[in-house]
Write a protein that binds this DNA or RNA. Structure first.
Lengths: 350, 350
DNA sequence: CGCATGTGTGAGAGCGCTCTCTTGACATGG
DNA sequence: CCATGTCAAGAGAGCGCTCTCACACATGCG
């Protein structure tokens, strides 16, 4: 431990002092503080008065030491780039988690490993039992972290459907359904040659969105076509590059489904440069409903995800797991909403 | 505490067990683990072997109990809306903080009070000494939190210059200088009637940016003019409303300095609707260099802030304060960078 | 009235660690 | 040869809390 202690720390009010003031034993004060029913009304009141008077707050370290509970959960973010740093996904998710656990007097410990070494230390930290559970956000397929902590039987909830570790609880949005809806909307608007700009293949969200895209095409009898599918990395530049590629391969395309708003924005700039008008020549829809969607010109139709709700659900699931370690894994799938804007206006609008 | 314990927690390896395996006393193992120099080479090695073999990880709760240090710091986010949820400021700041404290084996506890009641509980939590220090982010002028925790002599660093509590350490960007640079650039591009769309008046960043704007005008001999100044709330809609107001009051304006990219985007859509071309008729610069700036059409010139660095510096300052509580408050002001894009192209470009 | 049962409270152990104090081994000097 | 100093290592207290157990007392039943 690198922290030396030059200064004596201020010492708080202890149970002992409260007990003395209330004229009872430590045990009784503990009972009152923890809401045990085995305390008579008078004694309870006098203890509460003493607690109030002294401004007593339990020492979490002492409590943890004996209960073997930390009263905290970890939120692990292992995403070096991408959507977590390009739209408000991350703060909104944290807010959802935070509101839910705060109500239960549980703290959130934030872990953001960057290097492999960090990731090792993060796993050690979790496995050492410093927290009661962990929420894992944005996992790539090759991440060894979830496997390690699930093996260690740490209560775990994953945000986003995990590629491996099927036995774990997770919260996800219906990426496939969201994508399908978006593409169906393009078809309803009269589009027939619809391309897809997908995300990294090692992310479940990318795969699901691609499947949803194909679902819609197949359901409409259009059929999937590899020359209409390009993959990028959720970034604007990646979206632009994919768009150039698609335009070269399929100059006849009349719509694009992009698996992120940023990629959609990149695609739009390429379409603009190529002299294709949006939405007249090419309709486009994005994903995430980020600020970029609303500020784009034309404003971008996009798939909105209930992000706060994901945070809340993941926290709720984790707290359940912490309460009862033998509980079977659960999955919560939240639905998306298509936000229609000018970029995907149909050809035959009424 | 609402958490009951139905399940016995797994117990970790203790110092005692390591000591037994290494054939030394608990005290010696503690010395080795904490890097005390008062241990001979052989003993140190045998202890290290035992630690390795058993996979020993210190129990933080037990350690905290005796050292009166938690080995964690709080990051308090008190911003209900605005920039924290509209651009990647927040994740990037957290990342900066996280990398710095992780290197010192200190954890980050995230606190996001939403209601007044939450804020009370947050203050109680901090004052109770559950963390060694706190980083306060995005304070409005009327927030009672910083006053309370500074009074309680909790080590505190504020991100963004605080309106009150001048005696506290803080990290800020040179908002005034950044704004001044941006406006000077507009002037250098031949603009003469330059409007400002500011942020909320109760935020220091808003005030500083407004001052920087005026500085540049005065320095160029143009002089400040209240009819060219509008205030909004950092959002796109707010920026749009402010732009309408400015256009009505000063149809002769030829440039706009917006204190956020989102407001700039709102302003651009209004200019577009009013038939003013950007940058030909009206040049515009934003602030934050968010993804919105790069995706806007035309791409938006913007002031970039070193956000990760702010996080790192604030963490560094806080750790110093934790080490030595009597250390005098320090301020760190980081410089900004103007990212030139098409939206502010000069009139007489070479 | 004696015993079983229940209920409120206290005593005390002990969670895993740090840190002071003490001991013991050895080197050095007079 | 003993006094003294130095340094490694151990003994043991105690951080603030929870929780088991024991106990005192009240109540119910045969």
């Amino acid at each position: 431990m690198t922290v030396s202690n030059t200064q004596p720390r201020p010492r708080g009010v202890t149970l002992e002092e409260v007990a003395r003031l209330a004229g009872v034993s430590r045990a009784t004060v503990s009972r009152v503080v923890n809401g045990s029913p085995r305390v008579s009304g008078d004694v309870r009141r006098s203890v509460e008065t003493a607690v109030e008077k002294l401004g007593y707050v339990p020492n979490r370290a002492a409590r943890s030491l004996v209960t073997r509970r930390s009263g905290s959960i970890a939120v692990v973010i292992t995403e070096p780039t991408g959507r977590l740093f390009s739209d408000p996904f991350f703060p909104r998710l944290l807010r959802g988690i935070s509101t839910t656990v705060a109500a239960r007097d549980v703290q959130v410990v934030l872990l953001m490993p960057e290097t492999i070494g960090d990731s090792q230390r993060t796993a050690d930290y979790l496995v050492a039992g410093h927290v009661d559970g962990a929420i894992l956000v944005s996992l790539h397929g090759d991440d060894p972290l979830p496997g390690r902590i699930i093996d260690a039987r740490i209560a775990t909830v994953v945000v986003g459907r995990p590629l491996r570790n099927r036995g774990v609880s997770y919260v996800d949005v219906d990426n496939r359904g969201g994508a399908r809806n978006a593409v169906e909307d393009l078809i309803a608007g009269g589009r027939r040659v619809i391309a897809s700009i997908g995300g990294p293949a090692d992310m479940m969200a990318s795969q699901d969105r691609l499947h949803g895209y194909r679902d819609a095409l197949v359901a409409a009898g259009l059929g999937a076509d590899p020359t209409l599918e390009a993959a990028a990395d959720f970034t604007q530049d990646g979206g632009a590059a994919a768009m150039r590629q698609l335009l070269a391969a399929r100059p006849d395309l009349d719509a694009v489904f992009a698996a992120s708003d940023l990629m959609a924005a990149g695609a739009m700039s390429v379409l603009d440069a190529a002299g294709r008008r949006v939405p007249e020549d090419v309709a486009i829809v994005g994903y995430d409903d980020s600020p970029v969607a609303a500020t784009a010109r034309p404003p971008l139709t996009s798939v909105r995800q209930p992000i706060e709700e994901m945070g809340q659900e993941s926290a709720r699931l984790l707290l359940e797991l912490v309460e009862d370690a033998d509980r079977a894994p659960r999955r919560v799938i939240l639905t998306t909403e298509l936000i229609r804007r000018a970029s995907s206006a149909g050809r035959a609008m009424p």
